[in-house]
Design a protein around this nucleic acid. Structure first.
Length: 645
RNA sequence: GCCGGUGUAGCUCAGUUGGCCAGAGCAGCUGAUUUGUAAUCAGCUGGUCGGCGGUUCGAAUCCGUCCACCGGCUCCA
């Protein structure tokens, strides 16, 4: 007998050799029907795994990532079998579960392609196999046996994967006709999978290396119930409605023109109004925190960026230098504001008493992004950073860094961004080529960030090799409507540029010292931030931000004069008010303005004109009753105050 | 940049296997209506079918090429 301990701390004895699924069945039938995989002493295992010693056990169901993971990983194998049946000789790369579904990287036989038209038959085949209730049978083999198996199958990618594995036993999983190299865990059999959808195909370089062969990546998703697939597809449709590119067009916030150039956003009046409010909001916060605005030009001499190191790092893959016709000088469109700000720091001698110096600028920068990478407002070639550089003494670094975290958190709180993650990006110590500066300075910078993040109680994930070339950073990431992660706020510690620009200050001992720099942008870029804001709010911006706060709707054009008067009064109360004088029925005007997501509709007709009142309707909510203009203005201003507290 | 897909009016989309002047709804304009909380009616305007080249008696439709956009990969100071 062995003792099995459950998550609630209770334990029970079972016969040695019992399988996870059998334990579940003894506990309850409903558990047995829902459980997908198990955790044994913290390791994820198959439900069919036999237990032979005292262990702790956790049952993973659909709602657990581990359960979903096993489900989708098994589904990837199922899809692989379906694909192989249509494309004999297909070679397989990797096929993992991902956040929403799974994919498999495959190499199609010479001359063959997969396209949308083939999705249906692949799905059908998957379900056909699934209904066969084939076991996902695990066998442990030696490395040599595994190599022989995949060499015989001419699956050279699998052979490469196995070759790179450590010696020892290797697990294979087989369902029906398909055998795959896999660590597991998997479902007991294919019958768990009741619905399947092939979502898209894409090219993906083998092992993420663009110098190697590009395989075909097939994305799919499956569910234990048909209904869940339908719900997921509805969810996808809903998400598409929140897409900032769609809403941005509908609400006339921004546009693009092929004639101007791809990835170069054009801000329309309403979008510009929105962005300006955000900028004013941040300027106010920054003023409180002791930042000083500076302004620098859009280009700088190439030498400036040679000094900073940006040219060596990005020069050849970037927009090419602008040459002057007479002197033959070379200028770069600025890809970063920091070198300009460094020169401002250098414009006069600095004392230790002057520090920290904080220079802020909404600086527009231009970067050559690969054409396939451009994406709405989130990835563009010209954008404005809410940039600032803090030059401080080493002893001030930690406090300054934490103050920046405060600013970012304040902004996120004000704009109701609750679901963000924080990532500490450190250097890859193996890869010296990628970075500039001494190990000593990197150590200092990295520990400064880690300490500050800990002191502020941020739950961070650490990524190695993601640092900027001149220093480590702390990034704030937010997801868009389709679950794609975007970096918004960023805070970076930099010992290197001060050295390259030979920045100095005079200490109290009359000796010269080097300051430390913090690069920071709480929004990140105005373009990307607005994009994510649109997706979060579905275009229903907070009252203080929205381009138009109220629209006056006269019942008929007999009341246009009164409507005009009301609109003027409200504008005088600083409420951004527009007038809808069209000759339409009130229902039509309400509908149109509801769709424009203007927060308040002010309806005026005979009643209101006689009593000098207005009838107020809240977008998405309906009639709120009648008010005087003064009272209405008070309500709006209170609402705004609450939002900005 | 690479793989796959898409491109018809300002927007959303029809347009069978190539075949008469390319269609609809919404938006816009004109007129009628004078309206009470999510679509009043009628008429009109609007398109080099993404660009260029080719095949054909004939191309929105087939082929080539370029451009832009969409989903990924790579990249992201």
């Amino acid at each position: 007998m062995i003792k099995i301990t459950f998550p609630d701390g209770n334990s029970r004895e079972f016969e040695s050799g019992i399988k996870g699924i059998e334990i579940a069945k003894i506990l309850s039938n409903s558990l047995a029907s829902e459980v997908l995989s198990i955790g044994i002493n913290g390791e994820n295992k198959d439900l069919t795994q036999s237990l032979t010693q005292d262990s702790s056990i956790v049952f993973y169901k659909w709602d657990d990532v581990e359960g979903k993971h096993a489900f989708w990983h098994s589904s990837a194998h199922l899809m692989a079998e379906a694909l192989e049946s249509f494309y004999p000789g297909m070679k397989f790369g990797i096929g993992p579960a991902i956040e929403n579904g799974f994919y498999y990287d495959v190499e199609l036989p010479e001359g063959q392609t997969i396209s949308d038209a083939d999705f249906r038959k692949i799905e059908d085949k998957m379900l056909e196999i699934a209904r066969g209730k084939f076991d996902y049978a695990r066998t442990d083999v030696s490395k040599n046996e595994a190599l022989k198996f995949f060499t015989d199958k001419k699956d050279n990618y699998k052979v490469e994967l196995i070759t790179d594995l450590e010696d020892g036993t290797i697990s294979l999983y087989k369902q029906n006709t398909f055998t795959d190299l896999c660590r597991g865990p998997h479902l007991p059999n294919t019958s768990y999978i009741k619905s399947a959808k092939i979502l898209s195909i894409a090219g993906a370089y083998w092992r993420g290396d663009e110098k190697r062969k590009q395989l075909t990546r097939v994305y799919g998703i499956t569910f234990p119930k048909q209904k869940q697939l339908e719900e997921y597809l509805v969810l996808l449709e809903e998400a598409k409605k929140r897409d900032h590119r769609k809403i941005g067009k509908e609400l006339e916030l921004f546009t693009f023109s092929a004639r101007v150039g791809m990835g170069l956003p054009l801000w329309l009046p309403k979008g510009a109004m929105l962005r300006e409010r955000l900028e004013q909001f941040l300027k106010k916060v920054q003023k409180k925190y002791g930042y000083e605005p500076v302004i620098t030009p859009h280009i700088g001499q190439k030498e400036l960026y040679v000094t900073s190191g940006h040219y060596a790092k990005y020069g050849k893959d970037s927009f090419q230098p602008i040459h002057t016709p007479q002197e033959g000088e070379e200028f770069l469109l600025k890809p970063m504001n920091c070198p300009h700000h460094c020169e401002i720091y250098k414009s006069k001698p600095r004392s230790y008493k002057d520090l920290p110096v904080r220079y802020a600028e909404f600086g527009t920068v231009y970067r050559y992004e690969q054409s396939g990478e451009l994406h709405g407002l989130t990835r563009v070639r010209g954008f404005t950073q809410d940039d600032a550089h803090i030059f401080c003494r080493p002893d001030q670094l930690s406090e300054e860094f934490m103050k920046v975290i405060d600013i970012v958190l304040y902004i996120f709180k004000t704009l109701d961004f609750k679901d963000f993650t924080t990532q500490i990006s450190l250097r890859d110590k193996e890869n010296h080529e990628k970075y500039i500066g001494s190990d000593e300075n990197w150590e200092k910078a990295e520990s400064a960030i880690i300490e500050a993040a800990n002191a502020k109680g941020l739950k961070t994930i650490v990524e190695y090799g993601e640092a900027a070339f001149y220093g480590p950073k702390l990034d704030f990431m937010v997801k868009d409507a389709l679950g794609r992660k975007w970096q918004l706020g960023t805070i970076q510690v930099d010992y290197n540029l001060p050295e390259r620009f030979e920045l100095e200050y005079v200490g109290n001992d009359d000796k010269k010292y080097r300051p430390v720099m913090i690069h920071r942008a709480p929004f990140g870029s105005m373009e990307r931030f607005v994009a994510v804001l649109i997706e979060h709010t579905a275009g229903k911006f907070p009252l203080w931000l929205t381009p138009e706060q109220a629209v006056v709707l006269p019942i008929s054009d007999k009341f246009n004069d009164y409507a005009k008067k009301v609109s003027n009064i409200l504008n005088n109360y600083d409420i951004r008010t527009v007038l809808d004088e069209r000759n339409e029925k009130i229902g039509k005007k309400i509908r149109d303005n509801e769709l424009k997501r203007i927060p308040y509709m002010v309806i005026v007709g005979e009643k209101e004109a006689e009593t000098e009142t207005i009838s107020v309707r809240r977008q998405g909510e309906g009639d709120k009753g009648s008010f005087t203009c003064e009272d209405f203005a008070k309500i709006i201003n209170e609402e705004i105050e609450k939002q900005l507290n």
